[in-house]
Design a protein around this nucleic acid. Structure first.
Lengths: 338, 338
DNA sequence: GATTGACGCGAAAACGTTTTAGGGATACCA
DNA sequence: TGGTATCCCTAAAACGTTTTCGCGTCAATC
């Protein structure tokens, strides 16, 4: 392995000088610095991350907490995209990422982070109420969360309130008045969405019966099949259903087919997320697109920001705007007597 | 930060003794060792990974090379599952994983690995012909590949030859004789599958016209739409189509619907992979299940094996068995005059 | 000619571990 | 008694960096 000493010998200077030259210190003569840099290139010098970390106490390593118990973290298109985009952004900034699990270097997220000396942590797709997560958030390590907000910590999420608000308004414009909503389990995101739902209903003067609003589960086709069946056995039936996410709709759809109902002729539907899949199935799904790529980027940038100017990087709740994707899954029933 | 010295002071022994006790060396008295371990627990000692790595030259860190240029790595269900399962297995064995990119610590995969001192590397879902990958494979770093095989290196893949072989036989049993095959781009996996296809055809005495075998692209619904259209405009039409993977079928399906053809009444189809999605759509897809979880596990175990007994860990090509998932997408046309 | 400041560089300590080589007890054997 | 084996433990060096502090040189200024 080629070290700083090899360069120092080759150039006839001290190791200290090499280190400084390579790190761009100003107290090294410009031609010396140039010579050192050239030599480093030539003999393929590669700094030793461990040694550097030992001295500087900075690992240039970002921990990522993704739920893996349910195995829904990495195989979840929305979260995968976020992770992928955060990863790209972090690499751009010179940081690696390490998956944090509670099994390594101790038995909690925090201990794993300490063991690897993560400069910061990104938390997403996880049970935010768990003791482990709380412990991590309240530790000395900079943290940015995605789709959840803790006091005194920055977070990134999409405009959930606006999303359902606009979806409802869209359905209304298409003539729908009996709008059902299967929402996700109780999380901050869900609460914002429900609030957007009610806000729109209030503004539009819609009086939605409580049976039309059901608690489902995110990313769970089976649960949404149940809910769909329940909704469609009400009298009167809803003319449109809002699903908690696109993937859940896939389940609901099976149930609708089973009942002999066609989308959108017999019932209109809309999803949430705007994953690729939703635009590949037929009819193309009308849905609210969450810009997962931007969410990942913003989270990464904010985290680095917090790490680098620790003292006072502004604590903020970054909202990433989504947009309506108009598919073919909502029927215009204006004028029809339904 | 609490170090080995704090323990040594608290216990009145030397740092060396602490280190040995904690690492289970046999030349430490049992009650001393016990006392040291207890103290370590009490004051929440956490070894410093960087310092340890600097001394031992082992990082307990595994590099993972996943393609991200096409962004199909992390959002690809099959590969995500492999990654997730490899990650779990590696964590079980005390290893962390780090995503390797060519942007950090130099400008190639190899340099990044060296910078982070990865003990080994897992390569999957990547252009195996690229210079970067070759350089990495031929370096001093232990490597295990997934779905591709290099000389003198172990690899893991599923029984691709058997997969298509059995699919064809299944279609044959269901009465199909005009079987079309859209395969993936030219890779080792594809070649094995094509060979399985022809082997079955030969055994069954099927004479498949060359127009029935088309080169598509893995995981690309659009490309498979094209191919589907091409196949269905042939005369005579195939009665069954084998797709390169489940996800690709989603595209083909749209084209079939557009042509007014129903699955499986008008045409039978089968996929490959057995991802969740394929069992959630209707009709449920008949497909060959690749055991991504086992693939990830085996790859992880093999890699650690190579790392730990470097000299002669057996070089092997590990084949993970899949199985047929019988959905509803293939019609039994025995006796029908088609 | 003396003083000062800027500039360019190096010595050495430090980060927290692991590991080698050996030292002091104690016990056992001849 | 002396030798030797066994057991427990330690001193100290080493891993490859970074960084503080100070030193020498040279030019400019008084």
């Amino acid at each position: 392995m080629v070290t700083i000493k090899d360069i120092s010998k080759a150039c006839g200077v001290s190791p200290a000088t090499v280190s400084k030259a390579l790190n761009g210190y100003s107290d090294i003569g410009s031609e010396t610095a140039e010579r050192i840099r050239r030599t480093a290139q030539e003999i393929h010098y590669m700094p030793n991350a461990a040694a550097r970390q030992l001295k500087t106490n900075a690992s240039h390593n970002i921990g990522v907490v993704f739920e893996d118990e349910t195995h829904s973290g990495l195989t979840h298109e929305y979260f995968s995209q976020i992770l992928n985009s955060a990863k790209n952004e972090l690499e751009e900034l010179g940081y690696d990422i390490t998956f944090i699990s509670s099994k390594i270097g101790g038995n909690s997220f925090l201990e794993h982070c300490r063991y690897r000396k993560c400069d910061g942590v990104l938390i997403a797709s996880v049970d935010f109420h768990s003791q482990q997560v709380k412990e991590l958030v309240h530790s000395e390590i900079p943290v940015v969360t995605i789709d959840y907000s803790f006091d005194r910590h920055s977070c990134v999420m999409s405009d959930n309130n606006v999303g359902t608000y606009e979806l409802v308004r869209y359905l209304y414009r298409m003539g729908h008045r009996r709008i059902a909503y299967i929402h996700g389990e109780d999380t901050l995101v869900t609460r914002k969405r429900i609030s957007g739902f009610h806000r729109a209903c209030a503004e539009l003067g819609l009086d939605i019966p409580y049976q039309y609003v059901l608690e489902g589960t995110f990313h769970d086709p089976m649960k949404s099949r149940e809910c769909t069946r329940e909704l469609m056995s009400l009298d009167p039936r809803p003319t449109a259903i809002l699903y908690p996410d696109d993937y859940s709709y896939i389940g609901g759809r099976v149930e609708l087919e089973k009942m002999g109902l066609k989308v959108p002729n017999d019932v209109s539907v809309a999803g949430y997320d705007g994953i690729n899949l939703s635009q590949v199935i037929r009819p193309r799904l009308t849905t609210w697109y969450q810009d997962a790529v931007r969410i990942g980027q913003e989270a990464a940038k904010k985290l680095i920001d917090v790490i680098e100017k620790k003292q006072e990087a502004e604590v903020e709740e970054i909202e990433v705007h989504g947009r309506l994707i108009e598919g073919k899954s909502v029927r215009d029933i204006n004028g029809l007597n339904i």
